[in-house]
Design a protein around this nucleic acid. Structure first.
Lengths: 347, 347
DNA sequence: TTGTAAGCGTTATCAT
DNA sequence: ATGATAACGCTTACAA
């Protein structure tokens, strides 16, 4: 059972991971000098700096993140708490994650991913264990326990979504109400007095994702303003969707208006099977990502995840840097924009 | 300029974050006992355990991750290195991330996200700085610098994708060759002697993502075996795609075969505009996610990201636990399966 | 401009 | 079954 015995005296055996002490020795300076060279927190003579930097390169030294966090009281990582359910498209989520990570890296921050299934506890855990300096919570519900926890926790939190009780929490989101309004108005401008809306799965609605009621409110209020009747279809499953398709894709005497928030391929296929062509026999508008809208040639409002992400990170780092007071800013909203494509006639 | 002066003497002012020492005091035990209660690395009397656990609950103590990493030489996090370019669908990527994170959480591991834009250096950085105990590298190219680095680095690495020189690296992927074969065979079985393939953007091909040539090889070899001619279309941009659509969606005297790896909505819309219906006038098969395939009613092989993820994490944790030797396992491949839907006639 | 040394909050090796 | 105590590798006053 003698393992690792022959080589136990060999110094060059296992290439030890170099520490700042090793760098200091190599450069002939004190250990703290190495630290200050790296952090730039005090003036260093150019000669010393060069010696240290060369030593670092020679040894391929990298600072130990844990030790840093322990001594420095900061982790240089931010956590992203994913949504509880796959409510947005993967596209949208990925864009958020990408954009936030990019902004983080620009400041030498890393990104920790917290899954939804951990629930609100995940938020507590990552800041409790000092795994991060700040947190982004994705897609909060109208009433979301994570919002409550966001207030209690000792790290800055920015929340994507506009919860019911958002007081004292930094909230930020796309203007779903504005999008609903814009889409309905477009159809109204095209002369429609009645519009079929293919909306979210009732489960999503029940989950209370706040963007659903916000979108609905915007659409409804625009409909009232313009004297348009909205017929909501909220298919729960495949059979339900089929029923909806029969109802909304049936040929009419004259063009009718369709507002989609999902099931784009299915609806478009069904329309085509009924011999209806978007932009000619029917006007279709949608709440869709640019990619989807482009692929399907849909007149649409995108939910602008990149822009939202940019504002999120701006706010987050302002909080980290102490340049902003937590929870003081009003809920911020990224305006909706409509892009016309082939699925509607020209107004 | 006297800030925070009045309250500076107040002890209960700032709720200090409790440490294991505080827990020890509260429970009337030594600090090391607290540690052992948490880790379970030595027997503890049930009374002591209870006292400690109650103290922990009372103080809502959470261990400091950095301190742990420093003293324990392990971080309990794994890093995911994202692909250099958005080569797979966001769907697929998200599924990977989700599934890996889930598996990680089951073992109380966290997940660190490393963006593509950092390039190979990101891989070096996260293990160099002891930010993680192991790494998953997503979607490696045929020749990928990250594979080289994977070998050098002192943490276990599992790579998704089958690089050219995968010796000594743990590789794992979906069987793209098998998928290509399966799809061509299906069309051959339906009697087609010629098949139009709408393939990847030439940029993606140029990037050398290894799954492209693997898929191509599988499709080509099946085509040769079955005496089928493959006509490849690799549109680079929107105009290119339009040209391709004209070529592959033009009506023929009899049903023809179409193999898609992307641009599903565009092709299907174009077909419908030409009065062609999949499953009747044309047989369409695709390499598509279950979600896409279902939405478009496509006969397809999915790339099974969940299954791949499961094997990745199994391998990764085996390496972490020392239950497996790094780089010794042969490249593993998750078999392709074809699901028939409405876009093809029954054979 | 640089060095010295006291923590930071754990883990794990000794003892007992 | 439990308690001291020495690392772990860094940051940051405090000195010089």
């Amino acid at each position: 059972m003698r393992i690792d015995d022959e080589s136990s005296g060999d110094v060059t055996d296992v290439a030890k991971v170099p520490t700042s002490a090793d760098v200091a020795r190599e450069a002939g300076v004190s250990q703290s000098t190495v630290s200050y060279v790296m952090s730039g927190k005090r003036p260093i003579s150019s000669t010393t700096r060069r010696r240290v930097e060369e030593a670092i390169a020679r040894l391929t030294y990298e600072p130990h993140a844990g030790a840093r966090a322990l001594a420095g009281h900061r982790t240089s990582t931010i956590a992203i708490v994913m949504p509880l359910r796959p409510t947005s498209s993967a596209q949208r989520l990925m864009t958020f994650v990408e954009e936030i990570t990019l902004a983080a890296r620009e400041r030498d921050y890393d990104v920790l991913l917290v899954t939804a299934d951990e629930g609100p506890a995940g938020l507590r855990r990552v800041v409790g264990r000092s795994l991060c300096d700040a947190v982004v919570v994705m897609e909060v519900g109208t009433t979301d326990e994570r919002v409550t926890i966001a207030r209690e926790v000792r790290a800055p939190v920015v929340v994507v979504g506009i919860p019911e009780d958002g007081d004292g929490v930094d909230c930020l989101d796309f203007d779903f109400a504005g999008a609903g309004r814009l889409l309905v108005e477009e159809l109204a401008d095209l002369g429609h007095r009645a519009v079929d809306v293919v909306g979210w799965d009732p489960d999503v609605v029940a989950d209370g994702y706040n963007y659903v009621p916000r979108f609905t409110r915007g659409a409804t209020s625009a409909a009232e303003d313009r004297g348009v009747e909205l017929r909501w279809h909220l298919p729960a499953d495949a059979p339900g969707l089929r029923t909806t398709l029969e109802q909304v894709c049936a040929p009419r005497p004259e063009p009718h208006g369709l507002l989609l928030v999902r099931a784009f391929p299915e609806v478009l296929r069904s329309l085509s099977e009924h011999g209806l062509r978007p932009g000619r026999d029917v006007d279709v508008v949608a709440l869709a990502s640019d990619t989807e809208a482009q692929a399907h040639d849909l007149t649409a409002t995108a939910t602008r995840p990149r822009e939202v992400s940019r504002r999120v990170t701006a706010r987050l780092f302002a909080l980290i840097d102490g340049d902003a007071v937590p929870g003081r800013a009003a809920a911020e909203t990224v305006p909706a924009e409509l892009v016309r494509r082939g699925s509607t006639r020209r107004p």
